[in-house]
Write a protein that binds this DNA or RNA. Structure first.
Length: 638
RNA sequence: GGGCGUGUAGCAGAGCGUGGAUAAUGCACCGGCCUCCUAAGCCGGGGAUCGCGGGUUCAAAUCCUGCCGCGCCCGCCA
């Protein structure tokens, strides 16, 4: 309701001054009205009581009366302000329905803000390429991708970036496994560790070379998974993803981890490779790349199914190779915080910079002169700043300290810190998800299960009207949309436990609810078209008549209210990187549309109500944009 | 030991930064609505000591303070 406040600013300022209340920060005191029956914006008048010596309710009444009086002499005010009333010490201001309707139907690009010219770089996901994408990692990707989408809606020039950790221990272990283990050995190790109950025999040596994972091709009814079950138990049962490289290679990774726990020699070998990679050894880095690239490709395939894509991939090793890590270390050595440990390792002493705990030292260079992950991160950030105006990272809560240290180090080399969105982990009832321990719910399984359950619903509802492929298409769209929405709707800092039941919720408060409202809006257009009407022409011909809104039903008023505040919510969600605010608002929009649909029929007795149609179409566009912003697929029919 | 986060109906969860009126919403529960643009919908109902104790204020879920529970972190790992 920022537009309303803007319209009222001058008037309210003058009226308050007349009452002896000049210069007070009343704009900041405005709040949304308690309930729709009372208005849209409220001004609590309690603080004024002390100053004027009058009762709050009396002051509110005086302001209300003054505003009402001004309406007769000011057409603009009369147009936007439906009423100003006093109640219980509050001044309640209600926007005029016709005024909101005009704004809703006049807009050029509904759901999008004008281009800002701001370049935003959002780094998200950046998961180690050591195994299939699981639900725990998904929160990062879904938050990140939603921010990317919202920034685009908000008119920013966005770049989505995936930082590929191509030189650490994780990928080192994978590479070691690929070079030293046979398929038989992997089976043997995993079985011995009780990780797999029987021999999967799913990955013959040849298959590893370069499997064109086509396992994701649409799988019709056949492999339905029973609801309530946990389809992924880490192996054993017939695994539908046997041909997907990330699912194949994670077994090598897991086996190597078990071996390295048992045998120190393995650890030493891996350590040596990791050391060489950190020195920028091309041969080792190539070996690493050969090991992880198929895994990364498999992960990206899963992400694509979720509607998540990246503009650029940047490899960590790049910053070692191009010398920028060396430069960072040299600059940090000049920092007043710099010091050297006994064995020649370099660090910054951050005790005076708000870092507390067992250690306040931030090591950025080992005794042997090599760099650490965080050092490379500093170089990476330095480079990222050359690419954008605004820098956003999405990181797990376990990176908080690290991120703070990097921010301080960046300051020492004269760079600004990035904005970071931290999120809590998605846990399983039995504990934190871990690829290494095979304690995970794979996204591939979740998406498949979501599709199956969505199919069951569509099949029940519409088997008479739709053919198989249409129903499967809807099921796929509903499945991925629901999975995304159920994760994004929760504030990032809240930790939550993964439950199949919640992840697959399809009712009100979920993505299908939003999709359904959109589909209903589309159905109206289809109906009109089938009766020979030209919807666009109708909308274009619509002419706004304030009098038409004199007796607007609540469903219409409520829809217009939600539409009125869309832009401010989008702007806020983007400015503060809080995507769940937007998700909640789109939910409210869908809900409001359903109320409008109930109260305002577009087709009445064979006649088209142009006003209703114009508003319905505007809402449809906004719902469409909302889906776009949330990565929900806006089906025309479901 | 220290730091950060979190605790809101049976469950999930918004609101907390910028203190305001009867604490959203969904699931589950109870009751109603398909001769009318898609009932994955709509309408109505019951259910909350906002973790616990102090404090500030005309006013506290919101701010301060002390406890308690849960999570994450405090590597010359990534």
């Amino acid at each position: 309701m920022e537009r309303l406040v803007q319209e009222l600013t001058t008037h309210l300022g003058e009226i308050l001054a007349e009452l002896g209340l000049a210069g007070l920060p009343w704009q900041r005191m405005l709040s949304p009205a308690r309930e729709v029956g009372q208005g849209d914006v409220a001004l609590p008048c309690f603080p004024f009581a002390k100053i004027t010596g009058k009762a709050p309710d009396l002051i509110a009444a005086e302001i209300a009366a003054a505003l009402e009086a001004r309406k007769s002499g000011d057409g603009d005010l009369a147009a936007c302000l439906d009423s100003a009333t006093a109640l219980g010490g509050y001044l309640n201001l209600r926007a005029a329905t016709a005024w909101m309707a005009k704004s809703a139907t006049d807009k050029q690009s509904i759901g999008h803000l004008p281009s800002s010219g701001t370049k935003v770089l959002i780094e998200h996901t950046s998961a180690n390429p050591n195994g299939p994408f699981h639900v725990g990692r998904a929160r990062n990707a879904i938050i990140g991708d939603t921010l990317v989408r919202l920034n685009r809606l908000a008119g920013n020039e966005v770049r989505a970036e995936y930082y590929v950790d191509d030189m650490g221990k994780q990928v080192g272990i994978l590479a070691w496994a690929m070079n030293n283990l046979t398929p038989e050995k992997v089976d043997e190790v995993l079985q011995a560790a009780g990780r797999e109950s029987n021999t999967p025999a799913d990955a013959p040596a040849g298959a590893l070379a370069d499997t064109p994972a086509d396992a994701l091709a649409d799988t019709p009814a056949g492999n339905a998974v029973e609801s309530g079950d946990e389809p992924s138990e880490g192996g054993g049962e017939a695994n539908p993803w046997v041909n997907k490289p990330d699912h194949q290679r994670v077994r090598w990774y897991q086996a190597a981890n078990i071996l390295s726990d048992e045998d120190e020699a393995v650890d030493v070998e891996v350590g040596e490779m990791v050391r060489l990679s950190e020195e920028g050894d091309d041969e080792v880095l190539e070996r690493f790349a050969a090991a992880y690239q198929p895994v990364l490709d498999g992960m990206l395939e899963t992400l694509t199914r979720l509607g998540i894509e990246y503009d650029t991939f940047t490899r960590e090793s790049r910053f070692v190779s191009d010398g920028s890590v060396g430069e960072v270390m040299a600059k940090l050595a000049a920092s007043p915080l710099h010091d050297v440990a006994e064995n020649g390792a370099h660090y910054l002493e951050l005790g005076g910079r708000g870092i507390t705990g067992k250690s306040t030292k931030f090591f950025y260079q080992r005794g042997d002169g090599s760099s650490l992950y965080a050092t490379r991160d500093v170089a990476y950030h330095q480079w990222k700043w050359t690419q954008c105006d605004r820098l956003v990272n999405v990181l797990g809560e376990d990176h908080k300290l690290q991120s703070k240290q990097v921010a301080i180090a960046l300051g020492e080399v004269g760079q600004a810190a990035p904005e970071v969105v931290f999120y809590s982990f998605i846990k399983l009832p039995e504990g934190k998800m871990s690829t290494r321990h095979g304690r995970v719910v794979y996204m591939d399984d979740l998406l498949e299960e979501a599709k199956q359950q969505a199919y069951a619903v569509v099949e029940k509802l519409r088997r008479d009207e739709l053919d198989e492929s249409a129903m499967w298409e809807i099921a796929e769209a509903v499945g991925r949309s629901a999975v995304r929405f159920n994760i994004i709707k929760v504030a990032p800092e809240k930790g939550f436990t993964f439950r199949w039941e919640d992840a697959l919720a399809f009712e009100a408060g979920s993505a299908p609810f939003i999709m359904y409202s959109h589909a209903r809006a589309c159905a109206i257009g289809r109906r009109l078209a089938s009766e020979g009407h030209d919807v666009e022409a109708f909308v274009a011909a619509y002419s706004h008549q304030p009098a038409d809104f004199a007796a607007a039903p609540s469903g219409l008023v409520e829809l217009l209210r939600v539409m009125e505040t869309y832009d401010e919510v989008l702007a806020k969600a983007v400015a503060e990187s809080r995507p769940h605010l937007y998700a909640k608002h789109i939910l409210a929009l869908a809900n409001a549309y359903n109320g409008f649909y109930r109260d305002c029929h577009v087709i009445q007795g064979g006649q088209v109500n142009q006003m209703h149609l114009a508003i319905s179409e505007a809402a449809r566009e906004m719902l469409h944009a909302g889906c776009e912003g949330l990565g929900i697929i806006p089906l025309d029919s479901m």
